[in-house]
Design a protein around this nucleic acid. Sequence first.
DNA 1: CGCGGCTTTGATGTTCATCAAGTAAAGTGG
DNA 2: CCACTTTACTTGATGAACATCAAAGCCGCG
Lengths: 235, 235
Amino acid sequence: MALVIQTPKKKCNCISCELRNLAFSSLSDEDIGLICEVREEISYSKGEVIHLEGDPIRYFKYLKNGLVKLYKVTENGEEQIVTVTRPFEFVSNTNVFHEEAYRYSLSALEDSVVCAIRIDLIREMIIRNGRFALNLITVLSRTAENIISLGLEIRKRNLAGRIAYVLLYFSGEIYHSRIFDLPVSRKEIADLISMSSANVIRTFSEFRRDGIIKTNGRTIEIMDMNKLEIISRRG
Amino acid sequence: MALVIQTPKKKCNCISCELRNLAFSSLSDEDIGLICEVREEISYSKGEVIHLEGDPIRYFKYLKNGLVKLYKVTENGEEQIVTVTRPFEFVSNTNVFHEEAYRYSLSALEDSVVCAIRIDLIREMIIRNGRFALNLITVLSRTAENIISLGLEIRKRNLAGRIAYVLLYFSGEIYHSRIFDLPVSRKEIADLISMSSANVIRTFSEFRRDGIIKTNGRTIEIMDMNKLEIISRRG
DNA sequence: CGCGGCTTTGATGTTCATCAAGTAAAGTGG
DNA sequence: CCACTTTACTTGATGAACATCAAAGCCGCG
């Protein structure tokens, strides 16, 4: 189960938290201290659900480290993945401010740490501190825009182009490396790009035959970055 | 060309503007007055471009009345439509606060009026007035979420399901009527749902043959709402 | 060592894009 | 206002892309 590692006794360490540079840069040390006292830091291990769609929104959550997937389950029981994201994208927060319940589920693809602050407190701070608000708007906009953009990029490509795109996405945006361990199953890639898992696998095999990638289970090595980019562009 | 109908001489009418109920509800009469003085109200006739992707962002724009499409042009010259929207969705503003240039183009599908306020002024107001900021966050979140949701809904459906979905979208969200004039060409529907226009037309024909809709040019009448919803759900 | 889940591959049929050709509608210039 | 041009729409035929089904291999785990 999720492990709450709240640390009320230790002196506040939010002041030096690297995340502070992000949305919380404009908060005074006092306000940071206030947040620090009430915040909860929660660890989730790989595979754990952080929240489900329909759950009431009580916390403003963001990812401190790890990797998560945002997804929903369709009426016929299939998973549709909205995005896979790293810190410090504020996950799951597109609707935090205008709805009562989460629209999407969130689960950990790798061991992850989430920092949660009561949403009322964030609201208060927005009202009290305009600079903080402006900062937050910026971050929320970027997060939303990334999700929208991912959707458009996927939609305009065919199967091979979509696979090439997500491989480049994981390589470039997530792992910053030509070689990496896929954090998701073939099925989950299928759920992300709205294709069947059989065809995802088939395309992997084709890329392997063409010397574009090497695969060993979930380990992927991109051998021909150039060709992958061409497929992604023209797909 | 776009007609600027700025009215500096007339006394400010923003105070009673219905839009004020939306994001600007928390502004004082003074602030409203300030906005009122600098705002520009611009009319666009059907088909006109409001701004192009890549244009520098200088104004915070929102739709006062009319109907617009948000879109981008892919490398191979094809249009991809992000959303079609009515007031009072804040259009094109997902990236207003975190980027220098528009990512998407915006054009008028019907004669439209856009209210434009210098983005610096909005920034100032966010900083000065936290309630306004919170309000704005709510509206921006809703706008972004609607776009994300549309993308997901489209992605998970097949051709017939997508057509059914957009017909229900126009009928329910845009026109609130079982009978309406499509504001877009068949080709534009194709660009919205990422399908070929020939197949969009074919599907319209099938729906007509099956007595689900009646069409006369761009006039659509939904005859069997129930069947359309079934197709949309299982598609 | 055997079971169940993930992966892989092949075969088959459906769905969809593309091409082509024709018709209707809507601008455009005289 | 009409002839002309262009653009949007429509339908059919064909092939490519993709989903689905099925069977087998692999791998981790009890």
